[in-house]
């Protein structure tokens, strides 16, 4: 079983993420219920960066979606920055997600009709509110200030991924979730992208929870947890 390591902090720093007795079932085609997520205990400390390794289909995305409040757990608790999410209504979970969570999707999920800058602004619109200057600053940090007016189809895959990163940080989140963020990139771009994600998350004091099955990426982390080790549903 992998080891969960906390970055040292003082006793007053709240844990960014605390998961307890989390369960999520889905209905199978034959009508039976199948457990997809069954996690007793999971924590992520303040500004901690953790990679979770797992094979495809083991429920990693479901786990991330539960943390993000996109899905509601059947039971258990999820607390973000001390704020209990699992008992909240969907609307309140949406608000919490807008304020505290940034999400980098596997295929980026950028809006094709919006420019890079507009995509980043969207990341903050439903939370702290649009701040064009801050959004431009993020694009500059990821090296895309000169591409601010470009639409996603006018950007390379690597550039799109950087826009997705900037968007994930636009609402100044406490927690960044990254679901296979380098899955569509070649090795060199993947490493560069990973370093950028880690650096920028650290600069913004956001904890990072990254899921991947790419060994080359996982090797870059000090702390890697195997999803099968924490998720009893995959036993």
């Amino acid at each position: 079983m992998g080891t969960v390591v906390f970055l040292p902090g003082n006793g007053s720093d709240p844990m960014t993420l605390l998961v307890e007795n989390l369960k999520k079932n889905f209905a199978s085609p034959d009508g039976s219920t199948q457990a997809v997520v069954n996690i007793d205990h999971f924590v992520l400390g303040n500004a901690e960066q953790l990679a979770v390794e797992g094979r495809s289909g083991t429920g990693k995305t479901t786990f991330l979606n539960l943390i993000a409040g996109i899905l509601q757990a059947d039971s258990g608790t999820i607390a973000i920055d001390g704020e209990e999410m699992s008992g909240l209504s969907e609307s309140k979970r949406d608000v919490l997600r807008a304020r505290k969570i940034g999400y980098i999707f596997q295929t980026f999920n950028l809006l094709q009709g919006f420019t890079a800058l507009e995509n980043v602004i969207l990341g903050m619109t439903f939370g702290p509110g649009a701040d064009e200057e801050f959004a431009l600053g993020l694009l500059e940090r990821v090296g895309l200030k000169n591409r601010a007016d470009y639409r996603p189809r006018q950007l390379s895959v690597g550039q799109q991924q950087r826009v997705a990163l900037a968007r994930a940080l636009a609402n100044r989140p406490r927690l960044v979730l990254a679901d296979e963020p380098t899955g569509n990139l070649d090795s060199r771009s993947a490493f560069e992208s990973l370093e950028l994600i880690r650096e920028v998350s650290l600069e913004n004091r956001a904890s990072l929870l990254l899921v991947s099955h790419d060994r080359r990426i996982l090797e870059r982390f000090d702390t890697v947890t195997r999803f099968e080790d924490i998720n009893r549903a995959t036993e």
Binding site: S91, V95, R97, Y103, L122, F126
Partner: peptide
Amino acid sequence: RREFAIFRALGARRPT
């Protein structure tokens, strides 16, 4: 649908 799902994933509520 994907566009709306992205809005929601970014924190937009259903009424929005």
